[in-house]
Amino acid sequence: MGVEQKLGEMGVVTARLEDVVNWGRTNAMWPMLFGLACCAIEMMSAQAANYDMSRFGMELMRPSPRQSDLMIVAGRVSRKMAPVLRRLYEQMPDPKWVIAMGDCASSGGVFNNYAVVQGVDEIVPVDVYVSGCPPRPEALIHGVVTLHEKVRKEKIKDWA
């Protein structure tokens, strides 16, 4: 936002509420510690030293859905897991976002069969889809940054 330049000698800055809130939301968006399958390992890689998601304010994984803003669906969702996933989503406080990480979560991937939900968007609304089987940690980080861009554009009239 370039606060430093606008601040000047006055010690006061004016901004739109929209911008300030959205800025706050993007830089401390806590993901839920929720891994399903292969993608969860790459999600852990993204958290670890080499990729270091904390550069984007995303390092604090919360094991409880009640403390998290973002659900990263990392892996295939089976029919047995689907009700659990929906319940976890409902337990998250608003505002909340969902990233479908990997092909299985996005579309069922290679598993077109009786057991796997063909895309997690059948159960919960998805904001960003990340492709790959599994996606590289860079791809997940790109997905997160894309989500941040999306959140920055949110309008106050749509908050409800």
């Binding site: 399958a37 295939r76 089976s78 069969n113 009786y114």
Partner: peptide
């Protein structure tokens, strides 16, 4: 168990 049943063997 079974929360990650993927039907791999059948597929």
């Amino acid at each position: 168990v079974g929360f990650l049943h993927t039907g791999i063997e059948k597929n």
